[in-house]
Design a protein around this nucleic acid. Structure first.
Lengths: 189, 189
DNA sequence: ATCGCTTTTTGCCAAATGGCAAATGATTTT
DNA sequence: AAAATCATTTGCCATTTGGCAAAAAGCGAT
């Protein structure tokens, strides 16, 4: 809970009463490895904040291959935005890559907070914009670099993640095959 | 102007007085091909809306190669968000790919609108979030597909753009060399 | 320790893409 | 029209990456 509050307060100020209200709506919950936080074909109904563990967003492309679109680390919000905001079916899965501990807000509670706390919507918008810009910044360089460079950049950007995720997820995130990634690792050692 | 207003009103409602205020702050301005809307090393000081023409965002990677990060079409907002919002130097160029006609707002005017019009910030946030999500959605598939597929998808997504931009810009956007793109085109005909 | 299962590594060869330079084509300037 | 400049295409060959299948390694249950 401490982690969540200090994360939020980076983006704006809140008084004690507002903080208490947010805390009251927050539920701590665990996800076991491989469990889904939200699923394709369903409407996302919760917003989360990762206290511990790694999650990922993935989907199936038109060849039926599973593609990891990105990883979400500790101390970050996790929500299937398009689905949650517009109450439409999602086309992606949000899944725990390791055992995870999260704080979650149900959609009704989240909306109540938005309606009750003056300035909360501004904070939320800042959080969301920053997260989206980060996604763009992380995904874009992958397009124009070769596979080895992508892997090296990944290790730099996610030093804490690299040893906790299966090779297959990382390969699809980097847009290469599992065997290529394995060979790249071999060459680098 | 009509285009801008109907674009804005997709994201929320405004009364006539508010619309007039926005219109009053808007300036129509043209950019010639290759001119910069904002530049790396400088602080972005304007927000724009493209009435006519195509712009692009590009930067130089550590090998000194120029990389096009994305294209912006007619009827879309154009702003170097990170730089504009935080008044920090940008690392990217925003450039007219063709001759362009834009509507622009200076930073002081934009901030006045935000301070004056109730609900304007909400509309702006919606516009920005949608644009950022679109960028993620457009960039992500590029990572996991082969070059020919990327080119074909580009043609589907930007049918109006494909014939108005130099091959070199498109190649760097797709993350392939100019010669590869030229060969791909040859194979497809 | 062994079995069964999943993940990762490796070998082999094919296909895709890059690097470089020259040729061709297109556009602008003189 | 010719020259100069810039953009695109092509040829040749090297390198990277993919596809497939088998081997090896890792891991949990017994």
């Amino acid at each position: 809970m401490k982690e969540l509050l200090s994360y939020i307060l980076q983006f704006g100020n809140l008084n004690q009463q507002q903080i208490d209200l947010i805390s009251k709506k927050a539920t701590e919950i665990t996800f076991s490895k491989d469990e889904y936080f939200s699923e394709a074909g369903k409407i996302a109904v919760q917003v989360g904040f990762i206290i511990e563990g790694i999650m990922r967003v993935c989907y199936y492309n038109n060849k039926g291959e599973e593609i990891t679109r990105y990883f979400i680390e500790e101390n970050n919000m996790v929500v299937d935005l398009e689905s949650f905001n517009n109450s439409i079916c999602s086309s992606a899965y949000v899944q725990a890559v390791t055992d995870c501990k999260l704080i979650v807000f149900s959609k009704p509670d989240w909306e109540e907070l938005l309606a009750t706390i003056v300035g909360w919507d501004t904070i939320v918008h800042k959080i969301i914009s920053r997260a989206l810009m980060q996604k763009v910044d992380r995904r874009s360089p992958l397009v124009s670099e070769d596979a080895t460079t992508r892997y090296l950049s990944f290790m730099e950007k996610y030093p804490k993640v690299i040893n906790r995720i299966p090779l297959s997820y990382l390969a699809s995130y980097l847009g290469i095959t599992q065997s290529s990634l394995s060979r790249i690792r071999k060459n680098i050692r």
